[in-house]
Design a protein around this nucleic acid. Structure first.
Lengths: 303, 303
DNA sequence: GTGAACTGCTTAAGTCATACACAGTTAAGT
DNA sequence: ACTTAACTGTGTATGACTTAAGCAGTTCAC
């Protein structure tokens, strides 16, 4: 009977995001629109964070009553989801134009971080399952596209994209917390570094946290240091390159049942055994090196 | 005059976490304690998420009035910070005992993710500048420790640790959103995958999102796939290894001038040379293993 | 033209953090 | 021993929040 229902019923916010939500036919002409509501909500969030977005603040900014918004959105969660979709926007085409997957993926990450810089409140929007809205899918598509020419299988590609997402998000989160702290104290982010560093010096002893102590006194937490994030991303990309550079022409065979059997071949088992032996040798060499280094250091310090 | 003030004044919650907050001398005996308050708050969060933690819910669970908690905590933010400190706990010693930095760092990440599995609400605690509480510093220290034997400088080490943090956190976040969605719909996480996959199939066209389309029809978003996270982490670790394997003898410039001189000692140089030789052997063993595996696979497939 | 569907609005219920004033309790200072 | 200042847990109150329910008025389908 109800042929209207398109398919297994999309969540209302998803339907709105795709513009396929049922529009009312009868009744008075609508004075508001979802677009206007989401736009003003985004403006408020840009100015005062996600916590400044309340149904009443949005309604007031539009000159309507709070409850009128519920004629357009079933719950505040819907609004927040639509805000996220609008805030993240469309990925720039420059990503697709980048030469090579390294540059493409780096640019993707940089652009993603830049979005978090423009709309820091995006980081407060709770993650709700698979992203199923157009802009979110466009970002995902852009990221996967950069890996299109590589000999990675689809699972591996998604893994890498998720890893890079993690980095962008984390960078956005940490950067925001710095800027937030600086703004709240009325000082520059550099001063925040200096202050945090001073606080740590007060708390961190060489006995309790030796590694942090060492890093602290190397000035790592101090001001004016280089951003720690690009280095990490570069290592990911290196790791990906090394991964498929190692298997040169070898076709990417993901869930290969043959691989399983191949691993049981005598020659392969022999090679694996040799590799494990080499690993052991390396571990021991490293240990010896550490010991020699520690002994030398000790000797020098006692002089 | 006021010699009591220890230093540039720690935030109240930090002082509480270190147990150095000023204890009141006069007045009636305290019936509650910060420990009991934090413990019950953690229990509530474990059961119902961070949103279930309100000053009144905690107070009610303890059999006290809401406002009594404010005699122990200046604001709810303090309580949440202390909850985070308690929830993250102490890193297990197995991390320090792991053989080699690869294993150590992987284990650190796995343990961190496990903590997020036990206390998912930790992911909702807002990040507030440099972590300055004992347990958080202990985790940071454990991570930096794993890299102690590597030729990375302190900045690079922190970069890597931040990158790995990003991965754990992201894995925790994504996993939680799956489990949450599954619990809310009353089905298994696998069914959530199936449902999400079905929804995407309804929305993703080959024209608009070619890369997502391809991944989707390779079954990447479907149920029963392998976790995408270990692969990404492994690539980071590969990237780190490749990074300092590449700059061979180039001495890392540590803070310690003694270490610098110690590295020039003949015995240490000899050990380093042996270690490099072992690394070379391992690389070759790995290469032979890959070749043997590829050959065996080839033979099997041609049958 | 009638009725169902829809509009935006008002009121109200329930939750939340927390400021403030209160009476009772303890220890320091005299 | 007595005063006083510090501190306890409590009750009340305020302003903010989401959203359910009911309102009179408006528009389209039949």
């Amino acid at each position: 009977m109800n042929d209207v229902t398109p398919e297994p019923e999309l969540p209302h916010a998803v339907a709105l995001a795709w513009g396929v939500a049922a529009n009312p036919q009868r009744g008075p002409k609508r004075e508001l629109s979802i677009e206007r509501i989401v736009d003003t909500a985004v403006d408020i969030a840009d100015a005062g964070g996600l916590s400044a977005v309340s149904m009443s603040s949005v309604a007031a900014a539009l000159g309507f009553t709070t409850m009128s918004l519920y004629r357009y959105v079933t719950a505040k969660d819907d609004l927040v989801m639509l805000m996220q979709e609008r805030g993240i926007g469309v990925p720039p085409e420059t990503i697709a134009e980048a030469s090579g997957w390294r540059a493409g993926l780096s640019l993707w990450a940089a652009e993603q971080t830049a979005v978090y810089g423009r709309h820091p409140w995006l980081l407060d929007v709770p993650i709700a399952g698979t992203p199923a809205t157009p802009n979110n899918l466009a970002w995902l598509d852009a990221a996967l596209q950069t890996l299109a020419g590589t000999p990675l299988d689809q699972h591996e590609r998604l893994s890498i994209v998720l890893a890079v997402m993690a980095q962008s998000r984390w960078e956005g989160l940490v950067s925001r917390s710095y800027e937030e702290a600086a703004r709240q104290a009325g000082i520059t982010p550099d001063d925040i570094d200096a202050r945090g560093s001073a606080m740590l010096e007060q708390l961190v002893t060489a006995e309790e946290f030796p590694a942090v102590y060492e890093a602290l006194h190397a000035g790592v937490f101090g001001p004016a240091g280089p951003s720690p994030f690009p280095f990490g991303l570069a290592r990911i990309i290196d790791g990906v390159e090394g991964y498929f550079a190692g298997r040169k022409g070898a076709p990417p065979e993901p869930v290969d049942p043959l691989l399983d059997r191949a691993e049981r071949e005598p020659k392969v088992r022999e090679a694996a055994k040799a590799r494990r032996e080499a690993e052991k040798q390396l571990r021991e060499a490293r240990k010896r090196e550490r010991q020699a280094l520690a002994a030398a250091r000790d000797r020098l310090s006692r002089k």
